[in-house]
C-alpha cells in the first residue's frame, strides 16, 4: 500500500512544480515527474509478488510457472506512454527555446503577450 501512496506523493510534487514554478524548464520537469508517477503506478498494478518475469523461455515452460507471471501488458503500455512523454518533452523544450530567443528569459510571468 505504501508504494501507491508514494506514487501519489510523486504525482503531487509534479503538480506542485507545474502549478507554482515560474521557470519554463522547471514546469517541463514537473510535467515529466507527473508522467513518471503515473507510469510507476501503472507498472505497480501489474506487479505480482514472487512471480516470474513475463518472457517465455524454456525454463518457464518446463517448470509450469507461466501462470504465475508478472502482468506484461502494463509494461508494454507504459513503454508506449514513455514514448509519448518523450515526444511531448521534445516539443515543449523546442517551444521554450524559441520563446527564450524571442524574450531572453525563461520566466513565464514576463512572457505575457496574451492575457487570460
Amino acid at each position: 500500500m505504501i508504494e501507491y501512496f508514494l506514487c501519489f506523493v510523486l504525482f503531487c510534487i509534479g503538480l506542485y512544480a507545474v502549478a507554482v514554478k515560474r521557470n519554463m524548464i522547471k514546469i517541463i520537469i514537473g510535467l515529466s515527474i507527473m508522467g513518471y508517477a503515473i507510469n510507476l503506478f501503472f507498472t505497480l498494478i501489474g506487479y505480482v509478488h514472487n512471480a516470474a518475469y513475463p518472457i517465455l523461455s524454456k525454463v518457464n515452460i518446463t517448470q509450469q510457472t507461466s501462470l504465475n507471471m508478472v502482468d506484461p501488458l502494463p509494461q508494454a503500455l507504459v513503454l508506449t506512454a514513455i514514448v509519448i512523454g518523450l515526444a511531448i518533452t521534445i516539443i515543449l523544450v523546442s517551444i521554450s527555446i524559441r520563446l527564450y530567443e524571442k524574450y531572453g528569459t525563461f520566466d513565464i510571468t514576463e512572457i505575457r503577450k496574451l492575457k487570460g
Binding site: 508522467g35 517551444i95 503577450k113 496574451l114
Partner: peptide, 17 residues
C-alpha cells in the same frame, strides 16, 4: 511568432496535465 509560441506552450502544458 511570440503569441503563437506562448499559446502553444500553455496548451501543451495543460493538455499534458
Amino acid at each position: 511568432e511570440q503569441d503563437e509560441l506562448e499559446a502553444s506552450f500553455k496548451y501543451m502544458v495543460l493538455g499534458t496535465v
